[in-house]
């Protein structure tokens, strides 16, 4: 039996995998492949030899701690990236909240609030981007509200309607583009 199929080795690798759950998947796979290669190269034949190789590698916890500390060396801590799916959802919600608000104030408001919550909860965007995203997204409801206050709704003509439509499509779209660019940088 090859050492790599030995139950002690399997248990060891499983323990390292468990302890490194926080590592990026790629880094974790690399570490496990390295350890596997180490065991394979050792040519351990019986239980005692396998035990000796694993003891030499060190406690799974020690190896995992070393991997985690090499991942974020002091002073080089990077902000956690936004999960791509989450970033997209945030941008879509904010970008569509304008036209949605015009179509249905309830749906639009929900999209807007959900988008803003996702935006401000994401560590990847800087405050600057969050402010831009928020301003462009709330511009549409603010405009509609102010328009209603001024009683403009009663005198809206085709030109005004067109302008309102362009505004509610364009401004959140600009904000969404800024947010997307910030994540891709």
């Amino acid at each position: 039996m090859n050492a790599i199929d030995h139950p002690l080795v399997t248990a060891y690798l499983d323990a390292v995998a468990r302890e490194t759950a926080e590592l990026p998947a790629e880094r974790r796979a690399e570490l496990l492949a390295d350890l596997r290669e180490h065991v394979e190269a050792s040519d351990a034949r019986d239980d005692d030899q396998v035990r000796e190789v694993l003891t030499g590698l060190g406690e799974p916890r020690t190896v995992a701690a070393s991997a985690l500390s090499e991942e974020t060396p002091a002073g080089h801590i990077h902000p956690a990236p936004v999960a791509p799916g989450r970033a997209k959802l945030t941008v879509i919600l904010l970008g569509c909240s304008g036209p949605l608000l015009l179509a249905s104030s309830v749906v639009g408001t929900i999209a807007l609030i959900a988008g803003l919550a996702l935006l401000w909860g994401a560590p990847r965007w800087e405050t600057r981007h969050k402010v831009i995203g928020t301003a462009t997204a709330v511009a549409v409801p603010v405009l509609v509200f102010v328009g209603a206050l001024l009683g403009a709704a009663s005198r809206i003509g085709p030109i005004e309607l067109l302008l309102l439509l362009a505004f509610s499509l364009g401004v959140p779209a600009v904000g969404a583009t800024v947010l997307l660019r910030a994540v891709r940088r």
Partner: peptide, 13 residues
């Protein structure tokens, strides 16, 4: 080195 396994994360970095 006391734990040989810790060298692999170092090599990765």
């Amino acid at each position: 080195t006391t734990s040989q396994g810790t060298i692999y994360p170092l090599l990765s970095r």
